[in-house]
């Protein structure tokens, strides 16, 4: 009799152990998911801030630049795309588009010394640069926790839980490829 109770106890212990293990990894998965969401919210806040700054910039710039409509329109368009985006992929794409058109603007600004010296413009550029840098920082933080999360849902035994409870792979926030290259402009 004693032997059988031992066996039962043993089985129960193993079951409890397995449940505890799964519960532990389930909880850590939830934590990781939470972290990714938090960092993503950070990006969203900064993207919104960036979009909010654009109309002011466009208004300031318009008064000085009469012949740069293409650039100004591309900025407005990129901003609209950013506001309409509703997935990480679309957002990163629209954000990169906006970066490119802003870079193009900053290049031609060199030809407008009055604009360059305008206090309002300097302030807006600082705010924009600051926001861009915050986006870059938030993007790095987000990708870091997303990598952590994506690795976790692939590993055993978390992968079982992940498929069971529908934890999906997170999309990374990409940077445009030619980010550090200065676009060619001919004068």
């Amino acid at each position: 009799m004693k032997k059988s109770t031992m066996i039962i106890l043993g089985v129960v212990a193993v079951i409890i152990l397995v449940i505890a293990m799964f519960a532990g990894s389930y909880n850590s998965l939830v934590d990781k998911n939470e972290k990714v969401d938090k960092e993503y919210a950070n990006i969203s806040v900064q993207l919104e801030r960036r979009a909010d700054l654009i109309p002011n910039l466009v208004n300031t710039v318009k008064g000085y630049m009469e012949h740069e409509e293409t650039i100004i329109n591309s900025i407005t368009e990129a901003r609209q795309n950013l506001l309409n985006a509703n997935s990480v992929e679309e957002e990163s794409k629209a954000n990169n588009q906006l970066t490119d058109s802003l870079n193009a603007l900053m290049l031609v600004v060199e030809n407008y010394p009055d604009l360059k010296a305008n206090q309002n413009f300097i302030q807006l550029s600082d705010e924009l640069a600051g926001t861009e840098n915050r986006i870059a920082t938030a993007r790095r933080d987000y990708n870091e926790v997303a990598t952590d999360y994506n690795t976790a849902i692939k590993k055993f035994p978390t992968n079982l839980l992940a498929s069971m409870f529908g934890f999906e792979k997170k999309t990374y926030f990409e940077v445009s490829e030619g980010k550090n290259e200065v676009p060619n402009v001919e004068f």
Binding site: Q123, S125, D126, G130
Partner: peptide, 8 residues
């Protein structure tokens, strides 16, 4: 210390 202020 917002960005614009630090720049100025």
């Amino acid at each position: 210390l917002p960005d614009a202020k630090t720049g100025r």
